[in-house]
Design a protein around this nucleic acid. Sequence first.
DNA 1: GCCTGACTTTGCAACGATGCAACCCGCAGG
DNA 2: CCTGCGGGTTGCATCGTTGCAAAGTCAGGC
Lengths: 333, 333
Amino acid sequence: MAVTLRDVAEKAGVSVRTVSNVVNGFQHIAPATRARVQAALEELNYRPNLVARSLRQGRTGIIMLVLPEINVSYFGELAHEVVDYATSVGITVQIDESGGDPKREKELLTSLAQASWVDGVLFSSLGLRGVDLAGLAGSRPLVLLGERTARTSLDHVGIDNVEASRQAVAHLVERGRTRIAALGGSGGARDATSKYRWKGFQQGMRAAGLDPDGLYLRTPDYRRGSASAAVKELLQWGERPDALFCFSDELAAGALRELYEQGVRVPDEIAVVGFDDIEASRYSTPALSSIRPDKAGIAKTAVDALLRRLDDPQGETHDYEVPFELIIRESSG
Amino acid sequence: MAVTLRDVAEKAGVSVRTVSNVVNGFQHIAPATRARVQAALEELNYRPNLVARSLRQGRTGIIMLVLPEINVSYFGELAHEVVDYATSVGITVQIDESGGDPKREKELLTSLAQASWVDGVLFSSLGLRGVDLAGLAGSRPLVLLGERTARTSLDHVGIDNVEASRQAVAHLVERGRTRIAALGGSGGARDATSKYRWKGFQQGMRAAGLDPDGLYLRTPDYRRGSASAAVKELLQWGERPDALFCFSDELAAGALRELYEQGVRVPDEIAVVGFDDIEASRYSTPALSSIRPDKAGIAKTAVDALLRRLDDPQGETHDYEVPFELIIRESSG
DNA sequence: GCCTGACTTTGCAACGATGCAACCCGCAGG
DNA sequence: CCTGCGGGTTGCATCGTTGCAAAGTCAGGC
């Protein structure tokens, strides 16, 4: 079995408590004692039992990150930043996937927020409204990532989706495009991501004097395949927008692929702009213009917010807005 | 504070132990008692304290997955499969990143294998040899993912990299290519991935009567940017292979991008085959041929192996070989 | 009416660590 | 010589749960 404090104490001829003091760097210890204990610690290769420590202290140092799917590039990159930053402040990250399914999201929340050893939860929800969440949130701190859903009493970190989308459209307009289509999600209340991006799209169109209720290609999810299908259908109908604003880079990738297959030149005939700026987009052909959220900023802000709430569960909640940037590449150059 | 067994016991007028029995579905409990306890449980909304339970039982139900970087698509997809399968068998997954840095890998192993609450570790190493690992592996079960490194006494799950690479080359040869270049990694002992893939490449070349020590473009990592740079340099030198076998799909994506920029047509002038078959490759232009490892199979096999070892720490170790498939798409069609 | 055995329920100890408060000690000050 | 003080060390209780073994209850068999 594992080496415990008691084993070390026996070997060093001191009490368990003293060994614990040495391990935790307590001040008032006689140098001789400390040395003896240190020696015993090393000889037995003692490692503290973190479970026991957690039980006593009531904290585990583990936070949970709930994402729709870790294999989606944007979430993978976000998870990377979270793990990276959390590790740097001594926190371990558990990952769970909701699949974007509201039922599973609720399940996860009820079990996590109350039952688990998790100190707090970072939750990137697709389907749940803030109100749902507020009710479910248990005793444990919860920070929402992504779109700001309905007014809630929860901490939230994200970018200004409406403004980002507006800027994307403005950019396309500035490049002389007028028949601009939006692509992705449902735009409905259940899908906050597309709801806000669609809203920003409309603002941009209106500002340019274009029809704000123009073409909107809806998709059941944000994956490449859905965009391919949607674009294929669009072209079959003979519709020819001169620009496409896709609500995720993966959607844009699917769109680019389909346009390529149909022999439509990008950006000459149709310009394309994505959202998320995943790594792959820099290398697609043509390279994809996109909205780049400050992922590292989101991760740091979110983890910090969670830690702050751990120390002060009652404090006022905040809405943290993180910067973004419109990156212009070939696909809309 | 949280509701404990004692709170419930008091409310229901039974002993703590009885409540525990009810919670754990123990058989012999009087229906009346069970009902009373159930009612109290629900009224107080009791949730077991998993930390305490773990302390008592010596198991946490958490496994750690160590990857170089979660934002690399292949690892993201693998992580997805692991989380998915682990969840289905009631296991939670923690993720940590090594950055592929041998020093950090060692650090993680020493701390994880001994100190943590983790029941076991799935380790996808880039830089460490099996021998290093064997020495470091602490008291906790450890299963290696990816390339089989030096002969070890550890469980290992992966595909036959040599054979996969051989088949990729054979495919290119069959399509009439003769000046085939390999791209990725160093081929050295420190980089098992490229070592085996390069070996398979050579076997394939030899079998076709081609120079087995032909062109090998080395890269410091497996990311898109490195391949772009390598291909750029290659073309500057005036070398013109007629096929490129890239040791990862991300490398292939970078290569495709650079070939596009330089106006080299794929597959007409140069055919390209990748390795990993990440989601994005189906949608690249042109769509990328690739070796598809059975990722779900790897995940399931690895988790199962870990669980088996938990029950029988002394059992014989295995080398699990998981199937793969060569997917042929436009880039080498 | 007593014994056996199955069914219920329980108290105690333990998992390994840390908070608390007390203890012992030597020394300076009165 | 006694008191007070602060450094060094300790025992005990505790975190919330479950394993163990025994105690209590009750019905059925002899």
